[in-house]
């Protein structure tokens, strides 16, 4: 005897109703939903496309040109990449060599300032400020050796002193007996002192005051 399924039996009911729904959805494919395109439109568009495709031979030739272009692309991109890398290296070098008054000098100072801001602690910041002060000293030397550098010497000396004071006050706090202070004082003197004769009176006074300051940091021997 075949037992009929109770009406509450959910599984087979759900499955069979979904199957019927799927059948219905599939049947909808043959139902003219919204109708097809108007025959007049069909013919008109076909005619338009056929006349537009008269340019086809020209288009057919295009892929070969594209292939040549595609083959050239790696060469071109490699050349452009190499050129960019070279120009970046050259501009980095020029920027690194820039002195006050040069076009790229603000870029050099911006990079330096970013580096200072990225310091993890006071000790690292002090070390980087000492490097900046050394750079200012080298810039003073370069300015004195160049014909148009005179007007920038005073300001650069001022910045060198301020950076040095900022670095040394930090070092005095975090590493009071650091040998870096002695080494720095010695190096700065060696860079700056030889150029004293080329400076005017005001610049000499400024530089002597700076040298006295850094000498005072070195313990007496």
């Amino acid at each position: 005897m075949v037992r009929s399924r109770p009406r509450w039996w959910p599984f087979a009911t759900a499955q069979s109703s979904q199957a019927r729904l799927l059948d219905r959805l599939t049947e909808l494919q043959s139902v003219p939903l919204g109708g097809g395109p108007d025959p007049e439109f069909r013919a008109r568009l076909r005619e338009g496309l056929m006349s537009a495709s008269l340019e086809a031979p020209e288009r057919a030739a295009r892929p070969s040109r594209r292939r040549h272009r595609a083959a050239r692309v790696p060469w071109l991109s490699q050349l452009v990449t190499a050129g960019l890398a070279l120009s970046m290296m050259a501009s980095a070098f020029v920027t690194y060599q820039a002195v006050p008054g040069d076009t790229l000098y603000p870029l050099k100072r911006a990079a330096e300032s970013t580096l200072l801001r990225l310091s993890a602690d006071d000790a690292e910041l002090a070390q980087r400020e000492l490097i900046s002060a050394r750079t200012r000293a080298e810039e003073v030397a370069a300015l004195l050796g160049s014909p148009g550098g005179g007007p920038h010497v005073g300001a650069t000396l001022q910045e060198m002193e301020e950076t040095t004071r900022s670095a040394l006050s930090k070092l005095a706090r975090v590493a009071p007996r650091s040998k870096d202070i002695d080494t720095f004082a010695k190096d700065q003197r060696e860079v700056v002192e030889p150029f004293l004769p080329q400076m005017d009176r005001a610049q000499q006074d400024q530089t002597n005051g700076y040298l006295d300051y850094i000498d005072g940091l070195v313990p007496p021997r």
């Binding site: 568009l45 076909r46 056929m50 495709s53 086809a56 020209e58």
Partner: peptide
Amino acid sequence: AKTGDSDAFGTLYDRYLD
């Protein structure tokens, strides 16, 4: 149709317009 054969494109059009 890729090589510019308009008849081939026309046949594709007839087949896929609907």
